[in-house]
Nucleic acid binder design. Structure first.
Lengths: 256, 256
DNA sequence: GAGTGGTCTAGACCACAGA
DNA sequence: CTGTGGTCTAGACCACTCG
């Protein structure tokens, strides 16, 4: 039987992982410094660093230059039920915090969302979905979403200008039921949702905003809401670390 | 303005990535050897190796001990429309190859599936979904799925023994429309599907079967099919490299 | 300036594949 | 046996944070 030898860096990674999962190294706390671990184990700095890098790409720790290596504050996954979160009842619960609020509160954490509203062109692929020119200005609601003080998701909504400019959608608070209810009131009720899910590496800006190393992977979820006429009235681009989320979709089978 | 310095390994990675995407290094071909690149650039072996490791975790190349470093044979993403692939029309097209076949053919590649059929206990969480004891034997159809000669997915279906043992589901070929049609004929029509999507690192066995380095990430899709009575009659566990797939879900919005 | 993680070089040796 | 990628050590220096 070919019993292969476990590299030192893997042994150390296994050891540290166990201590993190057992709680010996608490969430958010600092790991021993690399040079300290090197001295303890009697191994070289680079060997220890390989172990830390492995844990980093697993999402268990984040190393910060000049400061130290820290255990991630969220080790569980946030459950996002994509189908039910767009139901009216979900959107109106939790004091108008909606589905995102419920998802975070389920972890015993406090949700927070920081919106930035602007007008400008959408990314080319989004513009195409919305059926507008790539240069045409649309309404952009960019939200940075937190669980306690951890950024867990970047969500940017794009609305065609002709139905969104000058409406309450340009206010920070869109009221009970959010943008979906406001659009419905104006005759743009959403009846069908499509979500495309990809996994990729974050851009440098995203990595910084999400406070993750740039070799970690993120979900890129492109959420498209259409009216009965088939018009896309809202596109949301979600970017979120894959280590933090699990997604769930439910649909009825079409017999045809 | 803080303009930070680009590390050498990143410069090299950028350079190699460009050459791969332009086709200068063809799909499936060998990259120059690490020591060769080191000599060309005048940089140290470890520096070059860092660049290769970066490309590896991006899914562009796979390094094989003792053989060389090879450009991945599939650089595009395979599109999996999770909603339409379970429609009868999709399942019956392509000479009974079904949705998977269509997905692969869209890339101009040839689909192939190697099934292994057995009876045994399901993983604990799957057993719970199926409503059977963790020790109880179920029907297991494990499929290794290829595009040309590349393994692109491992899909393992679990069926409760009381409805699957002794039926055509224990044969390699389940006929036109596949297991879904066979179950429907026996009064177990599937009317609702749930898929849970997580991203994780592969086990050592999965990494080997999928021919990917163990620090690459994979989708773990748990597909649950239920009858009108709410009984789960089939659970499929998909494991597939995140670099190879994009997923799409479509559903009708429930107004309530 | 002291302390932290990150990069880089030099060079040795190990593990695996294949002729 | 040779060639490939992988691991490891020794030690220097860089980049960033914070007092």
């Amino acid at each position: 039987m070919p019993e292969r030898k476990t590299p030192k860096w893997r042994q150390l990674a296994d050891d540290l992982r166990a201590k993190i999962k057992s709680g010996e190294f608490a969430k958010g706390s600092a790991l021993p410094q690399i040079r300290e671990l090197a001295e303890e184990t009697g191994w070289h700095y680079e060997t220890v660093r390989s172990a830390v890098r492995a844990l980093e790409s697993e999402g268990l720790v984040v190393a910060k230059k000049g400061k130290g290596t820290f255990v991630s504050s969220i080790l569980d996954k946030i459950y996002r039920d994509s189908t039910s979160r767009y139901r009216k009842s979900s959107r109106e619960e939790n004091g108008a915090r909606g589905a995102f609020g419920a998802e975070i509160q389920r972890l015993g954490m406090t949700p927070r969302s920081v919106p930035t509203i602007s007008r400008g062109p959408a990314p080319a692929d989004v513009a195409e979905i919305l059926g507008v020119a790539a240069t045409e200005a649309v309404l952009i609601r960019a939200r940075v979403m937190y669980a306690d003080d951890t950024v867990v998701q970047l969500a940017t909504s794009y609305f065609p200008g002709d139905i969104a400019f000058g409406t309450v959608l340009e206010q920070e608070d869109t009221g009970t039921g959010g943008s979906i209810s406001r659009l419905a009131e104006q005759g743009h009720a959403q009846v069908e949702i499509t979500e495309d899910v990809e996994v990729r590496q974050p851009t440098d800006e995203e990595a910084e905003a999400l406070d993750i190393p740039s070799d970690r992977t993120v979900f890129e979820i492109t959420h498209i809401a259409r009216t009965a006429e088939g018009r896309a009235v809202e596109v949301v681009r979600h970017v979120a670390p894959t280590t933090l989320w699990k997604l769930s979709y439910t649909w009825a089978v079409d017999a045809s």
